[in-house]
């Protein structure tokens, strides 16, 4: 397609406007994270008169990030491990139609991806409370696993489908067990898919709010996002500090995303777009 100059001019202007709309709030966060609160009140757009780096240290202390970021890391890791192990096993069986009921199981899982969280949240909460599982990261990781693994399985399924049938059959003829086929033949080939799933599930559980705020309420159990929410809601009205806290949570995610953007985007699109 070759376009006229005018068309290209209009297209780039429109894309540029959207770029500005997207970046403007993010720029405000970065800019104001180093400003004293008095200057934010004066003008949120102005360049910092003084750089208040202590916004970050105060945010770190007030949101107890030493503790809560660690909690998020633990929760995210647990979720990734659970989703990837259970999900790849299921994807293997479902993609290769190893069981007669593969259709029923697949549709059951598809149906649960659309189940509203409120449909199971309340009995789950009161059930967990009775079992003493509130404030238990492993229990929350199990909730995330239940919610995210259908998506993970649908995504992994496409990777498992791409493995040549001949490879699998040759191994089975040679007397390999299904476990050996899964481990030696499939896992090495689908590992990029597993990495993609790990990234996306990691992102989801790092950012998740509703379940985390409901099930992890103990001061020492809060995730970083919930701790940020409480900091900005109750403990301070210093927006410099709040934006600094926001930046601390967002920065690692953005760096990882920019570095691995193709994987992220293909993965998130792949779970929902039919290739």
């Amino acid at each position: 397609m070759t376009e006229s100059r005018t068309t290209l001019y209009i297209v780039y202007t429109a894309l540029g406007i959207l770029l500005f709309i997207t970046l403007f709030p993010i720029a405000l966060m970065v800019l104001n994270s180093v400003k004293p609160s008095t200057q934010i009140v004066e003008n949120p757009l102005a360049w910092p008169e003084v750089f208040r780096w202590d916004n970050f240290t105060r945010a770190w202390d007030d949101a107890r990030f030493g503790r809560t970021l660690w909690n998020s890391v633990v929760l995210t890791t647990l979720t990734i491990v659970l989703v990837c192990t259970t999900g790849s096993l299921s994807a293997y069986v479902l993609a290769r139609r190893k069981i007669k009921t593969w259709k029923v199981v697949t549709f059951y899982l598809l149906a649960t991806t659309t189940a509203p969280i409120q449909l199971f949240l309340f009995p789950l909460y009161f059930g967990f409370a009775r079992l003493g599982l509130i404030n238990n990261p492993l229990a929350v990781a199990c909730i995330y696993t239940a919610v995210y693994s259908p998506f993970a399985i649908m995504l992994l399924r496409t990777y498992f489908l791409a493995v040549p049938k001949e490879l699998e059959e040759a191994a089975l003829v040679d007397g390999a067990t299904h476990w050996q086929v899964f481990r030696r033949v499939f896992l090495p080939i689908v590992s990029p898919g597993i990495l993609t799933v790990a990234l996306i599930i990691g992102l989801y559980s790092w950012n998740e709010f509703l379940v985390a705020t409901t099930f992890l309420q103990g001061r020492d159990r809060l995730t970083a996002v919930v701790s940020f929410f409480q900091l900005s809601g109750q403990y301070t009205s210093d927006w410099g500090e709040i934006m600094a806290a926001a930046l601390i949570i967002v920065l690692p995610v953005v760096v990882l995303f920019v570095a691995l953007q193709r994987r992220f985007i293909e993965g998130m699109a792949g779970g929902s777009v039919k290739g």
Binding site: T22, I26, M29, N207, F209, F228, I249, V250, V253, V254
Partner: peptide, 8 residues
Amino acid sequence: PVIIATAI
């Protein structure tokens, strides 16, 4: 914006 936590 998709990858930034909703709370933030």
